[in-house]
């Protein structure tokens, strides 16, 4: 019987690898920001290189899965949804990479009193991204279990928003140049964007799940 599912197994593996890449990207995102805030330059640069590689791999896997689904007309009912999901998940790791890139290029000067808030923001954003990866895995295997993870995504995204809001208030109350304030404020948005991307995927997933369980 195994030979009948050989190609399916390869494809399942590719989707799992893609989701692994996104999940690893979210974890690395958190660690790399921590490296930056603790001024661990070597680890920071190493992680930046790793996340670039992961993002490239995720892109390749996504394209390969999409091509195979289309050329072999697989899952006709859910193909559009799966492709939409993969593309949006790809945006999550893209966002993580480009945020970290900004840290690497612009090297914002983050004041010590803001470090904990930045760490906490990065943590919540990464948790939101991880929860949406879990939800996506369940979408492929058990549509009814997806909602168990979606509520976590919404929870972490809200938490991240709250932290981002208070962090920006604190930044704009600091005795620093306005340009510096605006620069730091932009980085708060960069980090928070990962949680927003995770929420966008969650919104789509909840619709796909309703369609799948209908």
């Amino acid at each position: 019987m195994e030979f009948l599912f050989r190609r399916t197994k390869v494809l399942e593996g590719q989707i799992d690898d893609f989701l692994d890449a996104v999940s690893q990207g979210a974890l690395l995102f958190k660690h790399t920001i921590k490296n930056y805030l603790n001024q661990e330059d070597e680890a920071f640069n190493r992680n930046i290189a790793t996340i670039r590689k992961l993002e490239k791999e995720a892109d390749q896997l996504r394209r390969s899965v999409e091509n195979y689904l289309y050329t072999h007309s697989l899952i006709p009912e859910h193909r559009g949804d799966v492709l939409g999901l993969l593309e949006n998940m790809d945006n999550v790791i893209d966002t993580a990479k480009s945020s970290l890139n900004c840290f690497s290029i612009e090297t914002p000067d983050i004041k010590p009193q803001l470090v904990n808030d930045f760490l906490s923001l990065a943590d919540k954003a990464a948790l939101a991204a991880e929860a949406v990866v879990m939800a996506s895995r369940d979408f492929f295997r058990d549509a009814n279990a997806v909602k168990d993870h979606l509520h976590k995504v919404y929870f972490y995204e809200k938490e991240a928003d709250k932290i981002a809001d208070s962090l920006r208030r604190r930044i704009f109350r600091l005795e620093i140049d306005l340009s510096h304030k605006i620069h730091l404020g932009a980085f708060v948005k960069h980090v928070d964007l990962l949680a927003d991307r995770a929420e966008e995927v969650a919104d789509r997933l909840s619709i796909y799940t309703i369609k799948r369980s209908a």
């Binding site: 009948l4 399916t8 494809l11 399942e12 697989l74 899952i75 492929f140 295997r141 009814n144």
Partner: peptide
């Protein structure tokens, strides 16, 4: 389907057969 948690792609293959 709920109990076995079959992957969507495997389910698609099983459905075709």
């Amino acid at each position: 389907i709920r109990r076995t948690r079959i992957h969507m792609l495997k389910l698609d293959k099983i459905m075709r057969m």
